[in-house]
């Protein structure tokens, strides 16, 4: 099953990238996809041969609009700080440590990436369930982990 899904994902990408529809190029595409599927079929669904995360993708898609809204807010905040004439009085950088309650590896990575993309914070280090986050202002440091963790837990964690 995992091999079949891998093969069709590869073929979809081949057609998307190449854009040639004559028999020779399609044949080469099928051949290459077969080779990749035979040699590395366990990479795409690493550790989960029964492919559970294929269904998680739809939950992630439901999470993305909120993330995009947060990224927009983040950029507006950065714009305000950058264009402020006395910038050094606004910013107050600090390191924050906190523990997360997410257990899944995928959701932890998602949390780290989302923290990097949202207002005033970047993830410095992640070991186990402890995150080290560098916050640009005090307000953004207090807002951690907050609503984002709840949303990711709803989207990706299975009880």
């Amino acid at each position: 099953m995992a091999r079949l899904v891998t093969f069709f994902i590869m073929l979809f990408f081949w057609i998307l990238i190449s854009g040639m529809f004559d028999p020779f190029h399609l044949g080469v595409g099928v051949f290459c996809c077969l080779l990749v599927t035979i040699f590395s079929h366990d990479l795409l669904f690493y550790g989960h041969p029964d492919l559970p995360w294929l269904f998680d993708i739809f939950k992630v898609l439901a999470y993305l609009p909120w993330l995009f809204y947060q990224i927009f807010l983040a950029s507006l905040e950065i714009t305000y700080i950058v264009l402020h004439p006395r910038m050094l009085e606004i910013i107050d950088p600090r390191l924050v440590r906190f523990r997360t309650r997410l257990r899944n590896t995928l959701s932890r990575v998602t949390l780290a990436q989302s923290i990097t993309l949202t207002p005033g914070t970047i993830t410095v280090n992640m070991s186990g369930n402890e995150f080290t986050v560098y916050a640009l202002t005090q307000k953004s440091a207090e807002g951690l982990p907050g609503e984002m963790e709840t949303r990711i837990a709803r989207a990706l964690e299975r009880e």
């Binding site: 990224i71 927009f72 983040a74 950029s75 950065i78 714009t79 950058v82 910038m87 050094l88 910013i91 950088p93 990097t116 993309l117 005033g120 970047i122 560098y134 640009l136």
Partner: peptide, 19 residues
């Protein structure tokens, strides 16, 4: 404009993704 290395990363990472 940012004074230190880490805050430069803020400007680089976020604005680039959105832009």
């Amino acid at each position: 404009r940012f004074p230190d290395f880490y805050s430069r990363l803020h400007a680089a990472g976020k604005c680039d993704a959105l832009a």
